[in-house]
C-alpha cells in the first residue's frame, strides 16, 4: 500500500543558542494508508510535537514531510489550512469544542470553512453525529454534555469532512474507562472503514486497538512494532515501563503510579521489531519486581 505520510529526518527545535530545545530529532517515519498508529512515550518525548508537525499545525525546522506524496512542510500557510480542512481531522485531549455553539454547529464548523450552504452543512453534521451515536444530542451545548459525549462530538467534527488522516492527541486523557472504551471503539470503527488514524496515548492498554505502535523518547522514535488488533504489543509495553523507571520518574512519583497499573500479559503473538536501542540511559534503574502482574 502507498505511504500516506512520510517523514524524512524531520527535526523540530525551539529557542535559540544555549536555550535551544530539540523536541523532535531527525525522525523518519512512514505510515501507510489505513494504519492505526499508536504513539507512546513519556511527557516531553516529542510525540505531541510530532503530531503537530504531521497535522500541519507546525513546520519542521529541518527535514521533509510528504503527505500523499506532496511536500506539505513547504506549503504556504493558506495551503496548509486547506489541507487541514480537507485531509486532516483532529481530536484533542480537552475536546476543544466551541462553548457558544451546539453540538451540531460545532460539527458543522469545518464545512463552513469550505463554503458549503448552511442546510447542507447541518445535514452532513447531523449524519456525522449519528455515526458517533449522538443524533439525539444535536442541539445540546458542550456544557450540557458529558466528557465522553464531548469527545464523540469532537470525533464527529473530525470526520465530517471525510479526511484521510485522523490525528488524536490523547483522546481519552480526560475520560473515565467506560467513556474511553466508547471513544476507542469509534476510532477503531474509523480505522476499519479505511481511515488512517494516528493516536497519542499514555495508556498501553489502548494500544490493543492499534495496528502499529511507535514509542518515542527524547524526540526520537526508539521502538516501532506492528501489533495485532486486540492485543497489547509486548515490546512497547516493556519499553514503556522500563523508561518509566528512571530516577527522575521516581522523584516525580511516576513509577509508583505506573506500578498501580494492572498488567495483562496477552498471548504472545506480537511481532517484535525494535528499531533502535535506547542510547544513553546509565541512570536507568533495574525494574522493581512487579507484584501486580498476574
Amino acid at each position: 500500500m502507498k505511504n500516506i505520510i512520510e517523514l524524512r529526518d524531520v527535526s523540530k527545535l525551539y529557542g535559540f543558542g544555549d536555550a535551544t530545545t530539540v523536541a523532535v530529532e531527525e525522525v523518519s517515519l512512514r505510515v501507510k494508508k489505513g494504519e492505526f498508529v499508536a504513539v507512546m512515550g513519556p511527557s516531553g518525548s516529542g510525540k505531541s510535537t510530532l503530531m503537530n508537525l504531521i497535522g500541519l499545525l507546525d513546520r519542521p525546522t529541518q527535514g521533509t514531510y510528504l503527505l500523499q506524496g506532496k511536500n506539505v512542510a513547504r506549503f504556504s500557510k493558506w495551503r496548509q489550512a486547506r489541507y487541514r480542512r480537507d485531509r486532516l481531522g483532529f481530536v484533542f485531549q480537552s475536546f476543544h469544542l466551541l462553548p457558544s455553539m451546539t453540538a451540531l454547529e460545532n460539527v458543522a464548523l469545518p464545512l463552513a470553512y469550505r463554503g458549503i450552504t448552511q442546510t447542507r452543512r447541518l445535514t452532513q453534521a447531523g449524519n456525522a453525529l449519528e455515526r458517533v451515536g449522538l443524533a439525539d444530542r444535536e442541539f445540546f451545548y458542550p456544557k450540557q454534555l458529558s466528557g465522553g459525549q464531548l469527545q464523540r462530538v469532537a470525533i464527529a467534527r473530525a470526520i465530517v469532512n471525510n479526511p484521510e488522516v485522523i490525528i488524536a492527541d490523547e483522546p481519552t486523557g480526560n475520560l473515565d474507562s467506560a467513556a474511553s472504551r466508547l471513544v476507542m471503539e469509534l476510532l477503531s470503527d474509523l480505522h476499519t472503514s479505511g481511515h488512517t488514524v494516528l493516536m497519542v496515548t499514555h495508556n498501553p492498554e489502548l494500544t490493543r486497538y492499534a495496528s502499529r505502535v511507535i514509542y518515542m523518547h527524547d524526540g526520537v522514535i526508539i521502538a516501532d512494532e506492528d501489533s495485532d488488533i486486540g492485543s497489547v504489543p509486548t515490546l512497547a509495553k516493556k519499553m514503556y515501563f522500563r523508561a518509566r523507571k528512571t530516577e527522575d520518574d521516581d522523584l516525580a512519583g511516576v513509577s509508583a503510579l505506573m506500578d498501580a497499573v494492572p498488567q495483562k500479559d496477552s498471548n504472545n503473538k506480537t511481532k517484535k521489531k525494535p528499531v533502535k536501542k535506547r542510547r544513553t540511559k546509565s541512570k536507568t534503574k533495574k525494574p522493581k519486581s512487579r507484584s501486580t502482574s498476574k
Partner: peptide, 16 residues
C-alpha cells in the same frame, strides 16, 4: 485565543 486555535486546526485560513 483558544477558539482561534480550534478554528485554525479545523481548517480556517488566516484570512477567514
Amino acid at each position: 485565543t483558544s477558539e482561534i486555535g480550534i478554528r485554525k486546526a479545523i481548517g480556517a485560513t488566516n484570512g477567514q
